[in-house]
């Protein structure tokens, strides 16, 4: 058995995504989010996680997809990206999977709705396709650009 990566998977719409488990701090149910004005649309606000303020990014909005109202299965995945702790809102969280390196393919140019910037690859597990996300990109360069252009609500 060769090398493999362990990922936590979650759903957005009909697609299944995976994030390296070492980046995940915890997964919590949806809680009250305090809106922070003058931030980009995908920035939902901040939550209080045991006395710590965690910024929350809506992944649907981040990917330019239509937002949906939170449901019972909506989850916040609290991740540690570098030194930053960020919560991301997903439709539902599913499981932890081990994917062999050789089952991971480079991401095709365009994957429905998601800029190739965010993708590390696509993992094939049985007949499931798991889109592996690069979380750094979710909060970094493109995010910063949007932030700077969004000092006022429009």
């Amino acid at each position: 058995m060769g090398e493999s990566v362990q990922v936590a998977t979650f759903h957005i719409g009909t697609e299944e995504y995976g994030v390296d488990i070492s980046q995940i701090q915890e997964i919590i149910r949806m809680v009250e989010i305090t809106h922070v004005p003058r931030t980009p649309d995908f920035m939902d606000g901040v939550i209080n996680l045991r006395g710590q303020l965690i910024p929350i990014i809506d992944l649907r909005a981040r990917f330019g997809m239509e937002r949906i109202a939170p449901t019972k299965s909506t989850r916040i995945i609290v991740t540690d990206i570098g030194t930053k702790r960020v919560g991301i809102v997903v439709d539902s969280a599913s499981e932890v999977l081990r994917i062999p390196i050789e089952a991971i393919e480079e991401a095709p140019e365009i994957v429905a709705g998601v800029g190739a910037d965010y993708l590390q690859g696509v993992g094939k597990v049985g007949d499931r396709l798991i889109i592996l996300l690069d979380l750094t990109m979710v909060i970094s360069a493109p995010a910063r650009r949007d932030l700077e252009g969004a000092s006022l609500p429009s």
Binding site: T34, M43, V46, N48
Partner: peptide
């Protein structure tokens, strides 16, 4: 408490605080 730098600098907001109820106030 400072807002995370993921949120960025916002004109008009200097930080946040957690109230007795656990609610956040900017």
């Amino acid at each position: 408490k400072p807002l995370s730098d993921v949120v960025g600098r916002i004109v008009g907001i200097s930080g946040a605080t957690i109230l007795g109820s656990g609610a956040i106030s900017l």
